[in-house]
Design a protein around this nucleic acid. Structure first.
Lengths: 269, 269
DNA sequence: CACTTTTCATTTGTCTGACATTTAAAAGTC
DNA sequence: GACTTTTAAATGTCAGACAAATGAAAAGTG
């Protein structure tokens, strides 16, 4: 592991890259302890604060974890599905919110990927997955539900559908597509009628998954995509036409001219 | 933006979370300049090194960029597709390499997602995408190609297929699935016969995309999945049976008992 | 000897203060 | 006015120090 002190790049970035590469290529293996900060500082011939900045960069990506105390130090972290999942969601959420990705584009990507899961889910779903889907459908039928709670339940329903495929890699990949859509969905107001349509389609999907009907599950997802897209178009058209009749009461503090993007609660760095 | 000095968590982590949340929820907007490190240190009532550690955490996630000099500072970064893409690839690669994900699982996830793209690509692909696919097929037919070059070309082919769908969100999501598989694919030795089969299937896919035959593109991808899976199984079975006949010459320095995982070259943190 | 308590060395977390380097803007010069 | 020089502000880096956590060894105790 070497760095170039004459490079224009920050020393801490170079050190972080060097250590990360060592992790990625297997020189440093999971749960192995890195040298102490002082030793790293000596090795790279930099000061300890510089080493620390490098370690914080790695910690931000869940590549290492640190522990204080006698036999403490920095350890190579096994990237769990949970860690990867939350990073994926954060990245996807930011990507969508910062790049003015159209609802159409995000929606299309999401449903294309869900359709990829559906047949697998139909084949493999457990009773648990099915029960979760039914529970969420029931929740979505409750009259007093807020729009945000409705969206949250929607995400839970789709997560169960995806998890039903029994492929953790697929679940992890889909996490971004499904959860990152939630802020966009939160911008939509769901009328009683539109909720009814969505619940009906969710029911169709659940039935297809229950009867292991792969084609029906795909068809129902396509129908749901069409429904969602149409709903979003109507809502946005109504707003841009200056009739924010059914819109949320604005908090007045937003500096964005567009309907506000409502982020999910975020997890720890 | 507040932090709790009595929390057990690191101050730098708390500060990073506070700033990240401000970015995610829109309090800090793209290209906005953060207060200087000294001002942030005053605001949070911590020292400048602590603030710097927090900023490095954010920089590692491409949430901010820093600039030196007079009117320099830390700026909220617009997360580009390129940034998101490379983070996605790194995370996926590590997830696969550190969690002993079976080839079957990764392969299934990848092809399921690609099948989701194929119909869209058949509908929308430009002549450019098709040309890239044809070029890569031709490259893959060259006899002198190393296994790694063959894999790289394979990735390029599939990228063109995915990009053909014309949905940047989909391309970004698929990046992880396709590229993170490359190290796994690199563990496989491709015999002339297996390359032939793969090239033939690639040709079938390209033809389906060219003639805008959605169903044929999906069928060809499924066939490719079967072929890849069978190939991998044969290779791994042969190795575990103690006949590493067609395996790579081992470098002897690997401490892993399994066939070594060959990572892609990584980009900057 | 077995067990508990204390001490202690190690390591990360944080602070202070300083200097180096970069960079854009202001000031000066022709 | 165009060019050069100076300057100030900001990040990047350094050195040394102390605080806090923590496990292990040492000391004490029955």
């Amino acid at each position: 592991m070497k760095i170039d002190p004459n490079s224009p790049a920050d020393l801490s970035a170079q050190i972080a890259n060097a250590i990360r590469d060592a992790i990625v290529d297997g020189t440093l293996i999971v749960d192995e302890r890195l040298p102490s900060e002082s030793e790293l500082a000596d090795h790279f011939e930099v000061s300890r604060p510089t080493v620390r900045e490098a370690l914080k960069r790695l910690a931000a990506q869940s590549l290492i974890r640190t522990q204080r105390g006698a036999s403490g130090g920095a350890f190579v972290n096994r990237l769990s599905y949970t860690d990867a999942y939350s990073q994926q969601v954060t990245t996807s959420t930011l990507l969508l919110s910062m790049n003015a990705v159209s609802f159409e584009t995000a929606c299309e990507a999401r449903y294309a990927m869900e359709r990829a899961c559906a047949p697998l889910s139909a084949r493999r779903r457990s009773a648990d997955h099915l029960a979760t889907m039914r529970t969420e459908i029931h929740r979505q039928s409750q009259p007093g539900l807020t729009d945000e709670a409705f969206c949250a339940s929607d995400v839970a329903f789709h997560r169960a559908l995806v998890d039903g495929a029994g492929n953790p890699v697929l679940s992890y990949q889909l996490a971004g597509a499904v959860e990152a859509m939630q802020p966009l969905m939160n911008m939509i107001t769901f009328t009683a009628r539109s909720r009814e349509a969505i619940v009906a389609l969710h029911t169709t999907i659940a039935e297809a998954i229950e009867t292991r009907d792969e084609d029906a599950s795909i068809a129902a997802l396509s129908a749901l995509e069409t429904e969602t897209l149409g709903l979003a178009r109507r809502v946005f058209a109504a707003r841009s036409a200056g009739t924010p009749a059914a819109s949320h009461p604005d908090d007045g503090e937003s500096h964005a001219p567009e309907p506000r993007f409502k982020p999910r609660k975020t997890t720890s760095i």
